[in-house]
């Protein structure tokens, strides 16, 4: 019961930070969506120790772990887009597939190659890392 209460309080806290993010984005006409501002805000609160990770860990851990779940309803909305796939199906599949595959390869391969190099030079970089 206590756990559930803590979870709900944490969830409300995340909702408030999210709303605050939207408010700030609106107030300052920022070119970044409110939820991203909320995320940056939470990071700053954690980094400055205003908030402790333990205070929001349950709710945030749950939301991040089950992030895929929250996408399912949007995915269901594909059932209304039959026309799009009838009209542009093949070029669209080709565009999405090819850009995805090469994006993945380039991104992962770059990180892997550069990190290995980093490990070789670790003695040098370790001194500068702070």
């Amino acid at each position: 019961m206590k756990k559930l209460l803590a979870f709900i309080v944490q969830l409300i806290l995340l909702l408030v930070i999210c709303k605050l993010g939207y408010y700030l984005a609106d107030l300052f006409h920022l070119p970044i969506p409110g939820n991203v501002i909320g995320m940056i805000l939470l990071f700053i609160l954690l980094q400055t120790k205003v908030l402790k990770v333990e205070w929001i860990e349950q709710a945030s851990g749950f939301l991040v772990k089950h992030l895929a779940f929250f996408f399912i309803p949007i995915s269901i909305s594909l059932m209304t887009m039959g026309w799009l796939f009838i009209e542009y199906g093949l070029p669209l599949a080709f565009t999405l597939g090819a850009s995805l595959i090469f994006g993945f390869i380039v991104s992962a391969w770059t990180v892997q190659k550069l990190s290995h190099k980093g490990e070789v030079n670790q003695h040098d970089s370790a001194n500068h890392s702070l």
């Binding site: 409110g34 954690l46 929001i56 945030s60 991040v64 929250f70």
Partner: peptide
């Protein structure tokens, strides 16, 4: 999805 995005800060 809003709070879930915020939670990514963790």
């Amino acid at each position: 999805l809003g709070p879930a995005t915020v939670a990514l800060a963790v």
